[in-house]
Structure formats: structure tokens, C-alpha cells
Design a protein around this nucleic acid. Structure first.
Lengths: 152, 152
DNA sequence: GTTGAAAGTGTTCGGGG
DNA sequence: CCCCGAACACTTTCAAC
């Protein structure tokens, strides 16, 4: 990936609405090669897709909760089940298997504490955890879907 | 927000490339009213924008690290400075002010442990922390930018 | 890599019911 | 809310440099 591809990616990761001709102008290329590059980035899977970003407040999910989970069932079956559960819960927007102290980390979005409590109760009926702990975000200071292009 | 708006939002949060006519078909509306609804959702700020989603692996930032931070400087000046620092570091993709034990939580994306170490050293020269701790993600099981529409 | 241009498609926004 | 239709812009693909 040369500097043109990087610039294109930076722009599209910020905003994918402008026309190819506009992108081309900003990266210092003419439309045709710029269009070809975008096609290539999509075909090679560097660009996975284009999505609309919604406002959490406006969708009434202004509260972010991080849930750390320990389990005593370290078998693939348990994880597979839990994976399905996580996909069912739309409130779970991120889900990682961790190293170290904690086994799993979830990011959950809900309207408020009360709604989180409801979510929490539903969650623990769907899977067995040996230990589960919740941390609440008071403020979202930065959130971006744009990944750095510096490491390529 | 009625069921049409919710359906439109669900679709666009998954994929914003299809034409309005296609969206309209899927929600059971004709093009014009569907287009007007999308306009309204954008104007009211429910839809904040449209972005391209890049593949972390392909951009060589396959390692996610969660960094928990405690500070002893609980003044707005310190936070404001740190806010700027976080914006400078492209590796920091999420940044929350937390309640409870830990003061701040970062999600950081880097190529590998070595790169994380480099990032870490740079970070601690830019701000003072009383305590900082890193947890590594072994696997990203779920990551979505689509927020639930059920709470509106 | 560049330009220019043609054809097809989608968007946008009138008009009607 | 629906449909129709007509500008208009953008995408996509040429051929030629």
C-alpha cells in the first residue's frame, strides 16, 4: 500500500459519502486511477464494507458498560454457546477473549442503570459465569472506527 | 421513530451501499418516502455519518489492548491535556472516563506486543499516570458498529 | 500515470393521487 | 402514505495519450 492508498483509506474511514471525483481531488489523483484503487481495496478486503454510524444518545443507548467475565468452563463448547448468546444480544457491541486475569470482556450499550440491570439478569440466565463484574463509563471521550494506516 | 425508521436504521447500520430503492423494497416502502425518512434521520443527527470499515488484520493492527488508567490529578486541565494526547495517537480508537476503581479506559490497536511496548513508552512520556495497566485481547469475538434500535 | 467522454444507474425532487 | 417522471449527478467504462 503506497501513500495514495493510505490517504484514500484515511478519507473513506472518516466519511465515505463524497464522490470518487472528490476523493481523487483530495489525494491528488484523477478520478479513474482513484476509482481503480478503491475497487482494489474493496476486492482485497482491506475495506470490509460501508456502514451508517448512528448516534448512541439519539438511539437511547447512551450508557456504555464494560463487563469482565471469568469462567470455570474452559472448553470450546461453552465458548461456542456464549458466542451465540452474544450475537443474540444487540446490546453487546464488542466481545473479546482476553489473556490474563479476566477471560472475556464485553462492551455493552444500554439506556441507563435500570436497563443494564435488566440486561444483566437476562445474560446470566443464558450462560454460566464463575465471576462477572461491571464497570460503567461516565463519558465517551473518543470513539472512532478509523484504524491507523501507519503500520502497513 | 416508528418501525419503518427502525428497519431502515438496522439495514444502514449493517451496510449503507445499497440504493435507496433497494432499502425501500426491504422495508416495504416505495423509494420516495424511504428516501425522505433517510434524509430526516440524517438531518436530525440519528445517522451521524457513513464510513468505510477497514480490516484490522489487513492494516496490520490485529492486536487490541485495553489500557486501564488511574491518575492522581483530578482536575479538568489534566483531562483536557490527555484528551488532546489521545486524539494525536491514532492507535487509541476508544477512550472512556470510568466510574469506580479505574479512572480511564483505552482501547488501543497495534500490530503486536513489540509495537505496543513502543506505543506505551511514547504514551507515558506524554501524560502522568499514577497507575496504568494493560490487558491483551487474544481474540475479537464480536465487533459491531450497529447499535440496538429496540430502546427508542 | 493522465484526460475526456459516453452510457447506464441512482439520486433528488418536482408533479400527481 | 403511494406512484410517476424528469432533471441531474455520479459511477463506470471506454479509447487515447
Amino acid at each position: 500500500m503506497d501513500k495514495f492508498d493510505k490517504k484514500i483509506l484515511q478519507l473513506l474511514q472518516q466519511d465515505c459519502t463524497p464522490a470518487v471525483s472528490e476523493i481523487a481531488k483530495q489525494v491528488g489523483l484523477s478520478t479513474t486511477p482513484c476509482w481503480r484503487r478503491i475497487q482494489a481495496l474493496e476486492k482485497s478486503g482491506v475495506i470490509k464494507g460501508r456502514v451508517a454510524i448512528a448516534d448512541p444518545e439519539k438511539l437511547n443507548v447512551g450508557l456504555t458498560v464494560f463487563v469482565t467475565i471469568k469462567t470455570n468452563q474452559h472448553n470450546p463448547q461453552w465458548l461456542n454457546d456464549f458466542r451465540k448468546v452474544a450475537n443474540d444480544f444487540k446490546e453487546i457491541v464488542e466481545f473479546y477473549r482476553m489473556s490474563g486475569e479476566v477471560d472475556y470482556l464485553l462492551r455493552v450499550v444500554v439506556p441507563d442503570m435500570k436497563a443494564y440491570d435488566t440486561f444483566y439478569r437476562k445474560l446470566i440466565t443464558r450462560a454460566n459465569f464463575s465471576d462477572i463484574s461491571s464497570s460503567f463509563a461516565m463519558e465517551e471521550i473518543k470513539y472512532t472506527t478509523a484504524l491507523p494506516v501507519e503500520y502497513t
